[in-house]
Amino acid sequence: MDLLIAAAGDRLTTYEKRLAELVGIDSGSGQVDGLRAAADLVQTWCLAAGLAVERTPVVDPTGTPLGDVLTARRRGRGTRRILLAGHLDTVFPPGTAAARPFRVRDGRAYGPGVSDDKGGVLAGLAAIEVLTGLGLAEYGELILVCTPDEEIGSPGSRALLRGLGSQVDFALCLECARDNGDLVSARKGVAELEVTLHGRAAHAGIEPERGANALLAAARLTVALDALNGRWAGVTVNVGHLRAGDRPNVIADRARMLVDLRAWRTGEYEAALAEIRRLAAAPIVAGVRAELVVHAPTPPWEPNPTSRWLTELAAKVGAALGIPLSHTATGGGADANLLAEAGAAVLDGLGPVGGADHSPSEWLDLDTVVPRTALLAGLIDQASRAGGPF
């Protein structure tokens, strides 16, 4: 374990230099040029580390390019296949990297994507380099995957991720640890629902009876959806966007709603989704028809015995390194959900400690880079060797 810490420490200067370069590229979801430039950097570093690299362009359901999935592989001398999963896209618009450039203050790094998830991706690569440098190759194959569309639900990458999840023994996800250091051992399922209500326009003063008010239907559906909160433990339904009508003297002929559904358990997730479909299909206002589309449905990640064993193994490795570890469930969905759905044993939050994701204050604690890289490398090594629930 001392060797892991020392080897990770030797990588720290390189890690910080790479982080500054990667954060300096605008790579918001859909910014294809920036995402490919970020993938180019990671590819260069992976090739230098002796990994074989493959690039797979992906598109959304409409055929719009989203960027490339980068998959880097290294063979070992063992049998177990271990996936390290991270993403290169951020939530920030073009120009953010110049307006809010990478900087370090009081031991923390700041910049767009520094924690979510560029710092995590680089920790994954550093852990591979640590293992290679120490000659620790008890795994069968290490696979590092970096996607360009996680922040929008991985519409282009999900088939590839599910394929990898079905092929590996473990999936170690590189989202950064919670701001208190917790690993992530479960995530809520998420679905974004778009409801379009089609009504009929009419003059509100002269002949309102000829109209069918889509705005009224949207208001009533909003109330009905809000009433689902509390029906199932841990299920939340939020109407986060509603737009309808243009003028007060016209019966609105169209309304659009965006709805967020989250649930801890698969059965409750599916039941709530079915109820939302039923409510949308029911007559709400005479003459108004609802059209519902579910975007990037992501089922809950519920721990199984193998993922619990993996969480316990991480705690043992942490204890040997002098890093006390705890874990938590979180309401945010991620690629971990898709990998778990495919059958992999999953553990998340294995990047360095960070926080304030999706905000101008996003930060990464540089003092945690060395111990968390050593933890990740040690976990890979021990998961490759340990008996486990197999």
Rank of each mutant, 00 (worst) to 15 (best):
A296Y: 13
D226M: 03
L313C: 08
E270F: 04
R278Y: 07
A320D: 15
A204N: 05
G322Q: 08
E268F: 02
K316V: 10
N304P: 05
E302G: 06
A224M: 04
N229M: 04
I323M: 11
T306F: 12
V250H: 01
A263S: 12
G234I: 01
L242C: 12
V317D: 00
P303C: 12
R278L: 13
V259M: 03
A252P: 01
G267V: 10
R277W: 14
L273T: 00
P300F: 12
L261E: 00
N213C: 08
I206C: 06
A218I: 07
R247S: 10
P283E: 09
A315F: 13
I323W: 02
T298F: 01
R289Q: 15
T328F: 09
P305R: 07
A282V: 03
A290E: 06
A314I: 02
M257I: 09
L215T: 02
R265S: 12
A218Q: 04
I206N: 04
A217R: 00
A314P: 05
T330K: 13
T222W: 07
E291L: 12
V293T: 14
D260C: 02
I284R: 01
W264R: 13
T222Y: 06
L279C: 07
S326F: 07
W264P: 00
L310A: 10
W309K: 03
W309F: 13
A286Q: 15
R265M: 08
G240C: 10
A204C: 03
A263K: 00
L310F: 06
S307E: 07
L225V: 05
P248V: 09
A271P: 00
A281P: 10
G287W: 12
K316F: 07
T298M: 13
G240E: 11
R308T: 12
N213L: 02
T306I: 10
R289W: 07
P305A: 14
V239K: 05
I284V: 13
V288M: 01
R256S: 10
L310H: 03
T298S: 15
R254T: 08
L279K: 03
Y269S: 04
R243L: 12
N249A: 10
G318N: 08
A212L: 04
H327Q: 11
V293M: 14
L273M: 13
L321W: 00
A272Y: 00
V250S: 07
A272H: 00
R277Y: 11
L310T: 05
P300Q: 11
A315H: 11
G318Y: 00
D246H: 09
A274P: 01
T306L: 11
T222S: 11
T330M: 14
L216D: 08
A217L: 00
V259K: 06
T330P: 04
E209G: 04
T266I: 13
A315E: 14
A314E: 02
R262G: 02
T222P: 09
V293R: 15
L225I: 09
E270R: 10
T328I: 11
H295C: 07
E291R: 12
V285C: 05
T306N: 10
L261C: 05
G245R: 08
T330L: 08
D246E: 13
